[in-house]
Design a protein around this nucleic acid. Structure first.
Length: 275
DNA sequence: ATGTTTGTTCCGAT
DNA sequence: CATCGGAACAAACA
């Protein structure tokens, strides 16, 4: 589910609401992807920072004495972070519950994940640094020059769409936004990276940035399964503004949109507009 | 029953 | 040894 714009929205919402809160209680279910030692690790620590790293959400946890610890969430396909009231009923697919307190305010943050591809675990500073090193260019954080972007694309011998999805090369982009950016750049998704021209690279990096920023402005994309929502349960709006993902006809030429699997991922493109 | 799904990691083939 | 792509992970829905 969540790609960069969705993770960005969730991170921002968390920042605005639970900075400085202390984790007073942890209830964790044993599930693949939930670190088994999580409770003891994070209890009684204070959330002093919240940031997005690629598609991860990273909490900095501080305590009176000792080093900072980092709590890392990866939502994968169906993960959610949802606020709830203290002593509330379990939500569907609830895997982890953090009770948070600051002054006289208390609330609960729940990690829910239907398919359980998501991960929750802790890391020390060194491990976080290693995680950061794994990720490639984040287009929203820093716009690469066309030349650098072309070099990045050509560093892998695969299709241009495939390389957009490789987090160690370009981080944060997922299937939907990759399809959208390629459509706006009028590039066929299967084009080998070696055939991409400097002009195409320049256009593509701009359209990538554009679709990611539009996604952020719309607070993310909620597809028909409704699985993406922000911590308050609010859906995104970007599904109303998608150009070609999930469409039957091309919004530019009105021709039939083609659907093909590329590296096992469903891919929509217009065989007329995209070259 | 089969095929589909926003993601990532691991393993086998080249 | 490096790189690429398919299988697997799991659950719900059409």
């Amino acid at each position: 589910m969540p790609e960069l714009p969705e993770v960005w929205t969730i991170t921002q919402t968390l920042k605005e609401n639970i900075m400085g809160f202390e984790i007073t209680k942890v209830a964790s279910s044993r599930a693949p992807g939930i670190a088994p030692n999580i409770s003891a690790q994070v209890a009684e620590k204070k959330i002093t920072n919240i940031e997005r790293l690629a598609k991860n959400i990273v909490f900095t946890l501080s305590q009176e004495s000792g080093e900072d610890l980092f709590l890392i969430f990866h939502l994968a396909m169906t993960g959610q972070l949802l606020f709830d009231k203290v002593n509330s009923q379990k939500k569907p697919w609830e895997r982890l519950e953090l009770t948070l307190q600051k002054n006289n305010k208390a609330l609960v943050l729940k990690f829910c994940d239907m398919r359980m591809f998501g991960k929750v675990y802790t890391a020390n500073l060194n491990e976080l640094k290693k995680l950061k090193e794994k990720y490639g260019q984040d287009i929203v954080e820093k716009m690469p020059s066309p030349k650098d972007f072309l070099e990045t694309l050509r560093s892998k011998k695969t299709s241009v769409k495939n390389v957009l999805l490789q987090q160690n090369v370009i981080s944060g982009v997922g299937n939907i936004y990759a399809i959208e950016a390629l459509f706006l750049a009028r590039i066929l998704p299967k084009t080998p990276t070696q055939n991409i021209t400097i002009q195409q690279a320049e256009t593509l990096v701009k359209t990538l940035r554009k679709v990611l920023e539009e996604g952020i402005k719309d607070r993310g994309t909620t597809l028909d399964d409704k699985s993406y929502k922000d911590p308050f349960g609010r859906y995104g709006n970007h599904q109303k503004h998608l150009y070609i993902y999930g469409k039957k006809t091309c919004p530019v030429c009105n021709g039939l949109v083609r659907f093909e699997k590329i590296n096992q991922r469903g891919t929509y493109f217009c065989p007329i507009c995209q070259k």
